[in-house]
Nucleic acid binder design. Structure first.
Lengths: 104, 104
DNA sequence: AATTCATATGAATGGAGGTTCATATGCCTA
DNA sequence: TAGGCATATGAACCTCCATTCATATGAATT
């Protein structure tokens, strides 16, 4: 199977709202599961499932400390990828011509 | 809804194998539907559906010339995004430690 | 106007994956 | 070793979407 299959898997792993929020959190600093759960206000099992997906794609690395497990970005360039994709999306042609889009 | 929803939509639009192939083709130069169909050896309707998706995300722009419709990248930085995401994926930690992965 | 070429559209199907619920694992303290 | 805290796992459900098939639109040529 061509490289595009793996690349698509990689991009889709990043391209999920909750996981994007997690990645933006981890771009600040590594965090344990409980901190992520609190910050996103989502179910613990949901966060855990997403962290598993990110880990399987090697986007995130885990470090255990007592009961807690700290997650961090596997590579600093991942936060750049997230940031540049966001700014690029905002600047796309039709977006400019139609005024305000992608409001927060 | 937060910006992450739109960003996820944008990244998932790029993160599909067939669409990635299309984007890499269009990174060379703009092409009409028939050329893309021939290059990818996929059904015409499938390519058309994917071009529609890319266009709705403003990733691609269309230009009509007689019966043919030429598609091109909406922004040159999109090909950079595709390329950097591929090289970044290849370099991720576990990938290095486990030897060859993402073979073509 | 009819036919052909180029592309788009719509419905139907099948599969992948996000979310929730319930439960399991594992580490720590008393 | 019991109990509680932190995280992971599995199944079930449901939605989204990639693909195919059949058909429609539209432009060019005769």
């Amino acid at each position: 199977m061509p490289i595009e299959d793996e690349q698509a898997r990689f991009l889709r792993c990043i391209g999920e709202p909750t996981r994007l929020q997690i990645l933006k959190l981890l771009a600040e600093s590594e965090k344990c599961v409980g901190e992520i759960v609190e910050a996103l206000n989502r179910e613990q099992s949901l966060v855990s499932h997403h962290l598993r997906a990110l880990k399987e794609c090697n986007i995130v690395v885990a470090r255990q400390e007592a009961q807690k497990i700290y997650y961090g970005l596997a590579d600093l360039r991942l936060s750049e990828l997230v940031a540049t994709s966001e700014s690029l999306m905002r600047e796309l042609p039709l977006c400019q011509s139609k005024g305000a889009c992608y409001d927060e």
